[in-house]
Design a protein around this nucleic acid. Structure first.
Length: 222
DNA sequence: ATCCGGATCGCCT
DNA sequence: GGCGATCCGGATG
């Protein structure tokens, strides 16, 4: 009853949090390297965690799709903070999205976590996402994963290196398993492609494996 | 498979 | 006043 998957989950659950230096780099590099890392949230109900399989880079004030394009405001303040803290924002009047702040203090950029593959606390996630028709729907989108892990405004500006919210090192994803595409839901600044995802992973928010969007969306790194 | 509207509200123009 | 870094359910091909 001790499957390889269970052992892997256990090892990842005990891995060290990624250090601040991991985030003090170009936002594109952080977005790519966050694939495979483990996002974990602890709360009164227990621990939930998942492997990051999809990310997007938001580059700063000159990136029209980045919230920092509006400049330094109450909302965007965390983006100007220390690399390695969380930027958690409220959208569409009902959802939260979580980012990891990158580069350096005063450089307002971040990586949006768009999808997870559940690793721990799946039962808890199911209770928090009663409408999900399958486990894939638990965390295959930025708003969904925040509901499943119970991430919200309380976590805004919180360090990602200690509980209750943290990102641990995980199994690295090789280049031949990584694909890029334009960012989702972004009308402005479609180029360059700033979305990274694990190819063929079923938990990616928009599976590029079907339909006409396939050729457009799928662009492997190697 | 794809398109569309509704929910719901903080934020910036 | 209008619009989102979204999600869901229903209609349409």
């Amino acid at each position: 009853m001790r499957s390889a998957a269970a052992r892997t989950a256990r090892r990842l659950a005990e891995a060290e949090p990624l250090p601040a230096s991991f985030y003090s780099r170009a936002t594109e590099d952080v977005a790519r390297d966050l694939l495979g890392a483990v996002l974990e949230c602890r709360g009164p109900q227990g621990v939930t965690a998942g492997r990051i399989v999809e990310t997007e880079a938001y580059l700063g004030e000159d990136d029209l799709a980045c919230h920092a394009a509006a400049g330094r405001t109450g909302r965007t303040e965390p983006l100007y903070g220390a690399p390695g803290i969380a930027y958690v924002y409220f959208v569409y009047g009902m959802y939260w999205c979580v980012n990891a702040v990158t580069r350096e203090v005063g450089q307002p950029s971040a990586v949006l976590i768009r999808a997870l593959e559940p690793l721990a606390g799946v039962e808890l996630m199911r209770r928090r996402r009663p409408g999900a028709k399958s486990d894939v729907q638990l965390t295959n989108g930025p708003g969904k994963l925040c509901l499943a892990l119970d991430i919200d405004g309380r976590h805004n500006r919180h360090s990602l290196q200690r509980p209750p919210l943290l990102i641990r090192a995980g199994e690295p994803v090789p280049d031949n398993r990584v694909a890029r595409s334009p960012r989702i839901g972004v009308a402005k600044a479609v180029e360059p492609p700033l979305r990274w995802f694990v190819e063929d992973n079923p938990f990616v928010s928009r599976a590029p494996g079907h339909g006409a969007s396939r050729l457009r969306a799928r662009r492997r790194l190697t």
